[in-house]
Amino acid sequence: MSQAMDFLLWTKGPMFTIAMVIFAVGLLARLVEIFVLGRATNYAEPRANEWLPGFRTVLTRTVADPGTFERAPFNVVVGWVWHIGFLMALLLFIPHIELIKGVLGISWPGLANPVIDFFTAVTLLSLVATLVHRMAHPVKRHISTVEDYLVWTIVFLVVLTGYLAYHRLVSPYPLALGMHILCAEIFLIMLPFTKLTHIFTAFIARWYNGAAFGRKGVQS
């Protein structure tokens, strides 16, 4: 009879634990799998130390070079917009900060809800734009796999259900909130096994890239 509240408590309780465990096991397994492989010793005389160029690339690769921006402005801009919007909603919305504090014990200041609301709306729109682009652009359409659409769907659902819950557009609210939490949990569960891993591995990849080029005297 009390499905909505039971559903919410299930998503906040057992399901959250399950998602968190699968996420942590999967992610750590993934990361260890990468690092254990290691790199062969490099005997070539380096022009520079790898560390600094590696870390520099971790940062600089966030911004596209001017030529790439000119050739793929839509890709670059929309990619930026939705990533920023998503990260702002994820990390600066007060209830999310409380969640992180509850789990990890760390917290930081948040943003006013209307600001987050605005960014969430922008994120939703830009996500739709990325989907249209993926289906319309010859390269993206050609290289897209089922996984790409699956990941898009879950990311979109996470943001959409969050938006619906915040605006209380689904009744009763425990159902709306429960759906949002469940989507976020599916996202967490999928993360270590899909391209969502890039959330973590992109920084490792960038470092390896920057280190390889940096050692040869090129800031990549």
């Binding site: 634990t17 969640l99 509850g102």
Partner: peptide
């Protein structure tokens, strides 16, 4: 807060 999960000792 409502958004905090119920899992005991999540950390």
């Amino acid at each position: 807060p409502v958004s905090v999960p119920l899992t005991a000792n999540p950390g």
